[in-house]
């Protein structure tokens, strides 16, 4: 099953390689991994999307917790949570395709952020599923380039994950 793990780590050089190294050394899956500083400059937040059986997810969480630089690991699947991913996508938008592209962007609540005679560049956020759905709804030959940020997430409600 797909899980979103949210980590707080000491903002030290090499922190990212400790986590990515752990995943590769132990043959765990990584679907996406993002890392950025938080409001506290000594702490980074990492969000990892991974998949595996319950036993594997348990091992992943335990192994992550064991890393000396990791302050906290939360499996967002255990909570009601929100996930978002940002996608930038450049489409061929010529002639009759141009209107069609615009219509699809509107349906999926994306925004056109750059326009040329031949292309649209679109910004879209949502769950990974929604972004997948948008891509699937397009004719493959329209797509010039896709960049996705990877998933970030937070639990719903009043609770916060703190260091």
């Amino acid at each position: 099953m797909r899980h979103i793990l949210s980590l707080l780590m000491e903002n030290e050089a090499g922190a990212l390689s400790r986590v990515s190294g752990l995943f590769s050394a132990r043959a765990f899956n990584i679907e996406s991994l993002i890392v950025a500083p938080t409001e506290d400059s000594t702490v980074s937040r990492m969000t990892v999307v991974t998949s595996g059986s319950d036993a594997i997810i348990e091992q992943i969480t335990k192994q992550l917790n064991k890393l000396v630089d990791v302050i906290k690991v939360v499996d967002l699947n255990e909570f009601r949570h929100i996930e978002r991913e940002l996608m930038l996508i450049k489409l061929i938008a010529q002639n009759e395709c141009r209107d069609e592209a615009k219509r699809m962007v509107d349906i999926f609540r994306g925004r056109i952020i750059d326009v040329t005679e031949n292309t649209y560049t679109i910004e879209m956020t949502g769950t990974s599923e929604k972004l997948d759905a948008f891509i699937e709804s397009l004719d493959n030959s329209m797509i010039l380039e896709v960049v996705r940020s990877g998933v970030s997430g937070l639990s719903r409600g009043d609770k916060a994950t703190q260091s």
């Binding site: 050089a13 090499g14 390689s17 400790r18 190294g21 050394a25 000396v68 630089d69």
Partner: peptide, 14 residues
């Protein structure tokens, strides 16, 4: 050395 030893130490420091 940090990279080479990372997978076989409890922790390492530069």
């Amino acid at each position: 050395s940090m990279g080479i030893t990372r997978p076989c130490v409890k922790h390492n420091f530069l």
